[in-house]
């Protein structure tokens, strides 16, 4: 114990960081070993260095930036729309029993439905443009936001609302100044679920519709039996997804400074 305490804090911080990513390192090592073992052909499983070289080449030609930019643009715009609309809808549904009566079954049926199956129809309606892909993203990402918002609002302590009314808050202020912040932890959990969904749905839509974007590039690579291209896409998605999830966690920590979870984390 004493020796641990003597170590500089940054040493243990780095130690922890390394330990957290060890499982990923092990998986990568397994990939590398398997690809060089001769048990599989480079077509079935290209080596890491081959995939990295491919990503570097795409980065050099500017193709990576275009694909990455489009994928991020579509999924993040879709996510943002789903977030705003989902929170608004959740507030709206929580306010009135009639609205609730209408939306409850709609959500129960709509949430588990594979919305991506409607893509061909959506394309017929909206055309072969980004608007179709973003519509797919919104239609999937909005559900966890709405349900989390409703659950969060339902969980707000009755007496906290009463306090605000007692102190003179109008009903409109109550929504913005009390209900939303009180429900924020749950709403953020919903957003944390919705963000990877937005990325996944966008990439699947790109794969189906083709064209630019990481998913489109993977679909093209797959059509030309270019397994390095497919794996390059997978690695890119993994990195992008990881960064987005981390960024969302930072946002959460920033917004919930008051929450016991943040205070616990700060105290070690």
């Amino acid at each position: 114990m004493a020796r641990v305490a003597q170590r500089a804090p940054w040493v243990s911080a780095i130690g922890w960081g390394a330990a957290r990513f060890l499982p990923i390192g092990l998986l990568l090592a397994a990939w590398e070993l398997l690809s060089h073992s001769g048990a599989v052909t480079p077509f079935m499983l290209p080596s890491i260095e081959a995939v990295v070289a491919r990503i570097a080449r795409d980065a050099g030609t500017g193709e990576l930036a275009v694909n990455l930019g489009l994928t991020l643009y579509r999924s993040l715009l879709g996510f943002a729309i789903a977030a705003v609309a989902g929170i608004a809808l959740g507030l709206f549904i929580s306010r009135s029993a009639v609205v609730r009566w209408f939306f409850d079954p709609v959500i129960s049926v709509g949430f588990p439905m594979p919305k991506i199956a409607f893509l061909p129809i959506v394309v017929l309606w909206l055309g072969f443009y980004d608007v179709s892909r973003i519509t797919m993203v919104v239609s999937d990402a909005i559900f966890p936001v709405v349900t989390a918002t409703i659950a969060g609002i339902q969980g707000v302590e009755r007496e906290v609302l009463w306090s605000a009314r007692n102190l003179g808050a109008s009903e409109r202020r109550l929504q913005w100044e009390i209900v939303l912040p009180a429900a924020l932890p749950q709403i953020l959990t919903g957003l944390q679920v919705a963000l990877p969904i937005a990325l996944i749905v966008d990439i699947v839509a790109e794969m189906i519709m083709g064209g630019y974007g990481i998913g489109g590039a993977m679909a093209t690579a797959s059509r030309f039996a270019d397994s390095r291209g497919v794996f390059a896409g997978l690695v890119e998605i993994a990195i992008v997804g990881f960064c987005l999830v981390k960024a969302m966690m930072l946002v959460r920590r920033r917004l919930l400074l008051w929450h016991p979870e943040a205070l616990d984390a700060a105290n070690g």
Partner: peptide, 21 residues
């Protein structure tokens, strides 16, 4: 008929706003 600041209440379980200092 409704709550109002003419009747201030201190709740048994405090009911503070946890996101406010």
């Amino acid at each position: 008929v409704a709550p109002g600041p003419d009747r201030g209440i201190v709740f048994q379980h405090f009911a503070l706003f946890p996101w406010k200092t």
